[in-house]
């Protein structure tokens, strides 16, 4: 059962006289509960693909289906509902609201979903406990380290029990150890909540936890590798390096 399906999506950016074809027709299917990494060098179109999947941007042509529903057909209310309850977002630069405490950041999506303040607070405390920040719920983002901020963002992404977690370079602004911790946290939440995790990354630490890795190059899917085949490849990369 595919939770996300893309059909020949293309994205063309027009910058003055120059047109840049960021995606040249991508077909991709993501299964429920999968942990999938989209890999590729910067400029390969992986972030663009990622934004299309998340309904954060519209493709120039082609279709994106989430749970077999064509995203382009949704009106503003349905799109907001989708972003609120179906998808949880994690960003490279965390994107926490700077003036809000960790708890307020986590409960914001729940407020948008229509939960009462009390329900949201209880759920937020549980989620922050799960990501290991039970003691720091009333800290503001600037009082937290990068890794802790990203943990808050992970808790926020899981706020409304989404079916899909989209992580855009979640370890991009973190050091090696903290990055590994976040990857493991994501994997653990993926198993515990059964949410499908899709992450755009060029962090090779991500490979070992991914069920599948999609390599994107020059706006097309270069190859898709399953985990079983992946370990050998990582071995050869390490060996040759």
């Amino acid at each position: 059962m595919a939770v996300v399906r893309t059909q020949d999506i293309k994205k063309i950016y027009e910058m003055g006289d120059v047109t840049v074809e960021a995606l040249k027709g991508v077909d991709l299917e993501v299964e429920v509960g999968e942990y999938i990494s989209i890999m590729g060098p910067s400029g390969s179109g992986k972030s663009t693909l990622f934004n299309m999947i998340g309904g954060l941007d519209k493709p120039t042509s082609g279709k994106v289906y989430i749970d077999d529903v064509d995203v382009a057909q949704l009106d503003a209310y349905e799109l907001a509902w989708l972003r609120c309850r179906k998808i949880g977002y994690i960003f490279q630069s965390f994107n926490l609201i700077p003036v809000m405490t960790a708890l307020e950041n986590v409960t914001l999506p729940m407020v948008f979903a229509g939960l009462t303040s009390d329900e949201a607070r209880d759920k937020g405390v549980i989620l922050l406990g799960k990501v290991g920040l039970g003691e720091r719920i009333s800290h503001k983002p600037y009082e937290l380290s990068g890794g802790q901020q990203q943990r808050v963002a992970v808790a926020r992404a899981f706020a409304n029990d989404p079916a899909i977690i989209l992580a855009d370079e979640p370890t991009g602004n973190l050091d090696l150890v903290t990055g590994t911790e976040i990857i493991e946290l994501l994997r653990q939440m993926n198993k515990e909540y059964g949410a499908t995790v899709i992450s755009a990354t060029h962090d090779h630490k991500m490979l070992s936890v991914s069920d599948r890795v999609v390599w994107v190059r020059d706006g097309v899917v270069d190859r898709i590798v399953n985990r079983e085949d992946l370990n050998i490849r990582v071995g050869t990369i390490d060996g040759s390096a």
Binding site: W81, R83, C84, F91, F112
Partner: peptide, 16 residues
């Protein structure tokens, strides 16, 4: 602006 974008990702309606 970044905050507005984030709020939209969290499911805020434009009108809100």
């Amino acid at each position: 602006f970044r905050e507005i974008g984030t709020m939209k990702c969290m499911g805020a309606l434009d009108g809100f």
